[in-house]
Amino acid sequence: MFTTESGDEIFVVDGHVHLWDASPENTKNKYGEEFIKCFYDYHRLGPDEYVWPFEKYRKYSDEDFEKDIFQNGYVDLAIFNPQYLGDFYYHGFSNLDRADNFKKKHPDQVIANGFWDPRNEAKGLKLLEEDAAKYQLRGIKLYTAEWKGDSKGWKLTDPWSYKYLEKTQELGIKNIHVHKGPTIRPLNKDAFDVGDVDEVASLFPDLNFIVEHCGIPRLNDFCFIAAQEPNVYAGLAVVMALMCRRPAYFNEIISELLFWLGPDRIIFGSDYALWQPKWMIEQFMKLELPEDIAKETGQITPEAKRKILGENAARLYGIDIDERKKKLGLSTGSKQSESKRVTAVA
């Protein structure tokens, strides 16, 4: 919970977190080694005082997570988005079991999503059913650049992908988090193309597609697609990190997103342990867009911040914020009217 200077309490959902293991014991090959090193370069884009030693960054503890997310990070609910990377790490990089075990310790504060890979074909469909029951899945994370033997990636529009999307829908799982990386076949095409999101979002209007990192580096294509597809959302993981070293660019991006998607379809995510939510949320709450940007796309309101930091994700996952607050022993009730008052004053 983040409390504003005026005493307004903001329920915070971190829409993108990990408990990963890239320890030397779990790392299969040089690709796993290079993957975590690349992640470490991104990590160092954040504030210096939050940079960890590389050894800790490879594998950190549940206690680190509890401290950085729940105690210091203002987060009331954290959503795990697994990244398996089975070709790089023996037991996966950010796997379901570790997240699930962690969830058992904090049942009201954690949502642990699953994943699927259409290249597992019929066998994987069955596994998805089992996972859905075993982990009570409410969301799925897809990483289309995952290596698998000779294959260096897949598309949401691959024939087996449709079957998985149908199965996902049938199982009552509503939220699909999509992340693209740069190795999708065919290699001669734009590897970051988000056109396949457009197609599946139209075909599966009852599913929500949260495009992680706002489709970076195809932010412009993403915005055009999201403007047309009401079930496409912007996940702010990675984009938030720009606030540290390039705040002016962060301002431009958040104003673009507000212009194209509006405040109801943008979702905060720290991408922990890449970065920590504490400084991001503190800086975001202070954010005021400069006049020249605000003139074109409007100022970011306290109400928009409240939505982005928690209400939007809560809505997608059917979380009753008042009820959650009660469980956490926090005050409830007049928050809506308070937020309206703050907005009106602003």
Partner: peptide, 22 residues
């Protein structure tokens, strides 16, 4: 916007990569 944004990201990450001694 897109090009500038990617430029900012590439430069920042490259700086980190070059300064890394691992």
């Amino acid at each position: 916007h897109n090009a500038e944004f990617n430029g900012v990201f590439c430069r920042s990450v490259l700086t980190m990569r070059k300064s890394r001694t691992l």
